[in-house]
Structures are given as structure tokens and as C-alpha cells.
């Protein structure tokens, strides 16, 4: 008998500290599997955000730098420009990437910065306890939209992939989900493609992963996946929004 599935090497043997059923763990694993399969752990540097995954520097086996809130793409830019032979990725949540760090994200894409961004969108601020995120859905109840997000008052959700797809420097902008086996497998392919594009020096690549927050959504793990399917996917359609195409691998 052969082992057909096990923990990837690029994850340290440290238990995740996420809530039961939180899909951060799945996404971490996909990034680590990609690093393993491409054989790049020794020359990869990851940038951790501020948010629930702030401590992911304890989980990934590659070198890690923890960035100020929202600044991961700028920190990654500095790293990549300093050590261009290395693979640099950021792992960011929706508040980090699409609120406080919007400028850093957009301009890293504008420059075609040769980095990979793994963007975890769960439509809520998890770390601070369930406040409105830039990606919270219309009418979604959060701690800071207690009567539901009124778009005429609090503005509309940002569709990050659609926005970044309009920029010349973006090589890949793809939205995926981890709500079922098939979607997880697709997410893996997208993440691997994004890293491959970086290796091929094609520019800025971003994979937006729709994710859950059982604790702040007040739902159990399975209900959370259903909520994602019923509410997030219709607003944030899965798919490839930009792909310069023709990858050689």
C-alpha cells in the first residue's frame, strides 16, 4: 500500500490554531502542497498578514516575514526586489488586502510585481470578532452592520479579482472556493498556476479563495460551507478573470 495523501513537507508539524472547521487550514495545505510539488521551499519567502492567519509564520516551513496590517504586498515587493531569485508570496485576508491594504495590493498589481498573492475572502473580520469587511455582502449582519450592510450607507462589496483583472500588470486573477472536494482541487490548480507564473516571471498573480468563518458567522463547519455556497458564490462568481495564458508547465 502506498501513501496517497499526507501532510506536505512545507507545513511544519505544528497544529493549526484555527477554530474547528475554519478553511484557513485547507488553504494553508494547498499552498504547502504547491511549494512541495514545485520543489521551492528552500528559496521561498512568505509574508504573513495581520488577521487570523497572522501566525502562519509558525506553520509554513519556508522563511517568513510578518508584515504590518495591509502592507504585505509592499513588504513582498521589497523582498522580491532584494532577492529576485526567490519565490515570494503573501497570504492575506479580506480586511488586510481589500481595506487597509488596497493601495499596496493595487499598486503591486500595477507594477506587475512578480509575486503571488493568496487572498482569503470570508466576508468578515475574523480576528477582531466579526465586524464588516470590505467584502461583506449586502444586507449581511456583522458587529458593525448590526442591521445588515446597507450599501447606500456603508458602500458596496469589492470584487477584487474583477478589479485587478483590469490592470496590465496582472498575469493571473482567479477566484476559487474550498467548499467541496472538486472546488478544493480547482483551488489547488489555481494556486499552483500562480506560483508557476511567478517562476516564469510573468508578473503579479492573485488567487482569491472564498473561505468560511464558523465562529463569527455563528454556524457550524458544514453550515458555514453551505452559507458560502448560497451567499458568497452568487456574489463572487468563481472563475478566471485574467490569465495571460500559455503556461509552459
Amino acid at each position: 500500500m502506498a501513501v496517497v495523501f499526507q501532510k506536505p513537507q512545507a507545513l511544519l508539524d505544528v497544529p493549526f490554531t484555527y477554530c474547528p472547521g475554519c478553511t484557513h487550514g485547507i488553504i494553508h495545505r494547498l499552498v504547502a502542497e504547491t511549494i512541495d510539488e514545485l520543489g521551492i521551499e528552500g528559496h521561498t519567502v512568505g509574508v504573513a498578514p495581520v488577521g487570523c492567519s497572522v501566525m502562519n509564520y509558525n506553520f509554513f516551513a519556508c522563511d517568513m516575514v510578518q508584515a504590518p496590517h495591509g502592507r504585505a504586498p509592499a513588504v513582498a515587493t521589497g523582498l522580491k526586489r532584494a532577492i529576485p531569485e526567490n519565490i515570494v508570496f503573501t497570504y492575506q485576508g479580506d480586511g488586510d488586502l481589500a481595506a487597509i491594504g488596497t493601495a499596496e495590493t493595487v499598486h503591486a498589481a500595477v507594477r506587475g510585481e512578480n509575486i503571488t498573492v493568496v487572498f482569503v475572502n470570508n466576508a468578515i473580520y475574523g480576528m477582531t470578532g466579526g465586524q464588516m469587511a470590505p467584502t461583506s455582502l449586502p444586507n449581511q449582519v456583522t458587529q458593525t452592520t448590526p442591521y445588515g450592510r446597507d450599501t447606500s450607507y456603508s458602500g458596496h462589496p469589492i470584487r477584487v479579482c474583477e478589479m485587478l483583472a483590469t490592470l496590465e500588470g496582472t498575469a493571473l486573477a482567479q477566484r476559487v472556493s474550498v467548499d467541496n472536494v472538486k472546488n478544493v482541487q480547482n483551488a489547488k490548480k489555481a494556486i499552483k498556476k500562480a506560483f508557476t507564473y511567478q517562476i516564469e516571471k510573468r508578473g503579479f498573480s492573485i488567487v482569491e479563495v472564498l473561505s468560511t468563518c464558523p465562529t463569527n458567522w455563528g454556524l457550524d463547519a458544514q453550515e458555514s460551507l453551505q452559507w458560502l455556497r448560497d451567499n458568497m458564490i452568487p456574489y463572487y462568481p468563481l472563475g478566471v478573470y485574467k490569465d495571460v495564458g500559455g503556461t509552459t508547465k
Binding site: Q6, Y18, C22, R29
Partner: peptide, 8 residues
């Protein structure tokens, strides 16, 4: 989500 399962 916790990489707790190995499959053979």
C-alpha cells in the same frame, strides 16, 4: 482543515 488524515 487540520491535515489530520493520511490516506493509503
Amino acid at each position: 482543515p487540520d491535515v489530520a488524515i493520511t490516506v493509503e
